[in-house]
């Protein structure tokens, strides 16, 4: 524990220090620039665009993943045939590395890709277009891929959480005449509330850190249409070798993440 927290806090301290430097990460003589990296950040239009994408991304992916995760968990806890098969299909995306799947998704959403073929087969050919090349559709595709990738995780957590719900309580409710929807809203959802809040917190942090999918699928483009805080930190720290500015962005991320986690946490405590 001490090791874990200690290690990470050393890193945070170190990052905070680097954020005050104008440094490329390897030069022997970094120059101290005080808070200049932070003032630059607030005037940086790409930073604000990345923030807007991050917020939108968070709202959409969290909502969809949570709903899908709960529904899958409820259904697969019910009596259903071939349950294992469904579980595997939902689970597999979680284990596949985004680096491997990125070219596959670019192929699927390309101008002559399978997604457009599918649309044409369904008689919606007029909708077909190069999804990732268009600033307007690239972000939704990135969100879709993320949902595809991480719903398995919310599913697993809800599935585990639902095992805590006492079947007798549900049975009693049924005897009182409660239907499926009523059982879901009055017993199951309250029963997994803690998990929902935990997932909410993880989603906030996850959205702030979002990196893999946009970086690998679109590289943040076209024209920063899929730039996120996470990809922007990477762009500044590694290819542009502006480690100081990258660290300042990371500190910003840290502050935001802690702030939102505390917000969720205070709610959790109030309920408890």
């Amino acid at each position: 524990m001490i090791l874990s927290v200690g290690l990470v806090y050393i890193c945070i301290g170190y990052t905070g220090y680097i954020a005050t430097l104008d440094w490329d990460g390897s030069a022997p003589d970094p120059e101290s620039v005080g808070l200049a990296n932070f003032t630059r950040l607030f005037a940086d239009p790409i930073f604000w665009r990345a923030m807007a994408h991050t917020v939108l991304f968070f709202v959409v992916t969290f909502t969809v993943q949570t709903v899908l995760g709960i529904v899958f968990a409820v259904i697969l806890h019910s009596r259903i045939r071939l349950g294992v098969l469904y579980k595997i299909i939902i689970f597999v995306p979680v284990v596949l590395a985004p680096a491997v799947m990125a070219p596959v998704f670019r192929q699927i959403f390309a101008a002559d890709g399978q997604f457009n073929e599918l649309l044409r087969a369904l008689g919606m050919g007029s909708l077909a277009h190069p999804w990732l090349a268009d600033s307007a559709t690239a972000l939704p595709v990135i969100m879709g891929i993320t949902i595809w990738q991480w719903t398995g995780l919310t599913f697993i957590l809800y599935y585990a959480a639902m095992s805590q719900i006492d079947p007798e309580v549900i049975e009693a409710a049924r005897i009182d005449g409660a239907g499926n929807i009523r059982v879901l809203t009055s017993i199951i959802l309250p029963g997994v509330k803690g998990t929902t809040l935990a997932i909410l917190m993880l989603s906030v942090i996850g959205a702030l850190k979002t990196f893999d999918v946009p970086y690998l699928v679109t590289g943040g483009g076209p024209n920063y249409a899929t730039e996120f805080l996470g990809t922007y930190i990477y762009r500044q720290s590694i290819p542009l070798a502006d480690v100081g500015y990258g660290a300042a962005l990371s500190i910003m991320l840290l502050i935001l993440a802690v702030f939102f986690s505390l917000l969720v946490g205070s709610r959790q405590r109030k309920d408890a």
Partner: peptide, 19 residues
């Protein structure tokens, strides 16, 4: 608990050099 959670937030890339 919150100190621990804050540790979740830094991206791996940033942690590389100090680690």
């Amino acid at each position: 608990f919150w100190l621990l959670l804050a540790a979740l937030t830094l991206p791996e890339v940033i942690l590389l050099t100090p680690m």
